[in-house]
C-alpha cells in the first residue's frame, strides 16, 4: 500500500480548520497556567504561611504524574464533584452541561501551572538582590517592588523557558482527542476512520503542529530579542555589564 499523497493533502486542508481549536486550548491553558505559575512561585519563594506546603505538594504531584492522567482525572473527577456540589447547593445545572473543552482547559492549566511555577521561580531568583534593595530604599512596598522591579525582569529571564511551555502545551492539546474534543489529532483520527489511511492523516496533523510550533518559536524569538535589547543582559551585575 503506497503513501496516498493526494489524501494527505486533502487531510491537511481539512485539519487546518481545526487549528483554531488547538490554539485556543493552548493559549487559554497558557494564560491560566501562567497565573497559577506566578502565584505558586511567589508563595514558594516567600514561604507564605499555610499556602506554601500545599504549593510544594501541588508542584511535586503534578510534575510527578503524566499529563494524560491529569486529563483523565479532571474529565472523570470534576463531574462527580460538580454534581455533588450542584445537588448540595440546589443548582439546576449538571455536569453534562459543562462543555468538554472546559475539562481540557482545566487539566492543561493545572499541569502547566506546576511547570511554569518553576520557570517563573528561576526568573525571580535571577533578579539582582541589589535592585530589590534599591526598590526598598526609595520607599517601595513589597508589592510595588514585585510589580515594578522583580516581575518585569523575571519575565524576560523566563521567556525562553516560556516558549518551551507554550510548545509543550500545544502538543498537550492533542490529549484533548482522548476525551472527544474535536481538535487536530482527534479529527485526524476521524478522517482516517473511513479509509484506514491513518498514516497519511497523522502525517498531515504532524505537519500542522510543526508549522504552529515554528510560528510560536518565531514570535517568542522576536519578543526575546526585543526585550533583551531593552534590558541588556538581565542577571548580569551592573558593574560587569558596563
Amino acid at each position: 500500500m503506497a503513501f496516498d499523497f493526494p489524501f494527505m493533502v486533502e487531510a491537511l486542508f481539512k485539519l487546518m480548520l481545526k487549528i483554531p481549536i488547538s490554539l485556543e486550548i493552548t493559549f487559554v491553558s497558557l494564560i491560566f497556567g501562567f497565573l497559577i505559575g506566578v502565584a505558586v512561585a511567589l508563595i514558594r519563594i516567600y514561604r507564605v504561611k499555610i499556602l506554601c506546603r500545599p504549593a510544594d505538594f501541588y508542584v511535586s504531584v503534578i510534575r510527578g504524574t503524566p499529563m494524560l492522567l491529569h486529563v483523565y482525572t479532571v474529565y472523570l473527577g470534576i463531574p462527580l464533584m460538580f454534581d455533588a456540589l450542584a445537588k448540595y447547593a440546589g443548582w439546576s445545572a449538571r455536569s453534562k452541561d459543562i462543555p468538554t473543552i472546559a475539562f481540557i482547559f482545566i487539566a492543561l492549566s493545572v499541569n502547566s501551572g506546576a511547570y511554569m511555577s518553576e520557570t517563573v521561580r528561576s526568573g525571580i531568583l535571577a533578579v539582582q538582590k541589589g535592585e530589590i534593595e534599591a526598590g526598598y530604599s526609595v520607599g517601595m512596598t513589597t508589592m510595588q517592588v514585585l510589580r515594578r522591579i522583580v516581575l518585569p525582569q523575571a519575565l524576560v529571564v523566563c521567556l525562553p523557558n516560556l516558549c518551551n511551555s507554550i510548545v509543550s502545551l500545544l502538543h498537550g492539546s492533542a490529549l484533548a482527542s482522548f476525551i472527544g474534543v474535536s481538535e487536530i489529532t482527534n479529527t485526524a483520527n476521524m478522517l482516517a476512520g473511513d479509509n484506514w489511511k491513518f498514516f497519511e492523516s497523522f502525517v498531515a496533523a504532524a505537519i500542522l503542529y510543526w508549522g504552529c510550533a515554528i510560528v510560536i518559536e518565531q514570535i517568542m524569538g522576536y519578543l526575546e530579542r526585543k526585550m533583551a535589547r531593552r534590558c541588556g543582559a538581565p542577571g548580569v551585575p551592573a558593574s560587569s555589564a558596563a
Binding site: Q128, P234, A238
Partner: peptide
C-alpha cells in the same frame, strides 16, 4: 549603593 543597583530594565 556601592554597586549602583540601578533598575536594569
Amino acid at each position: 549603593f556601592q554597586l549602583y543597583n540601578l533598575f536594569s530594565h
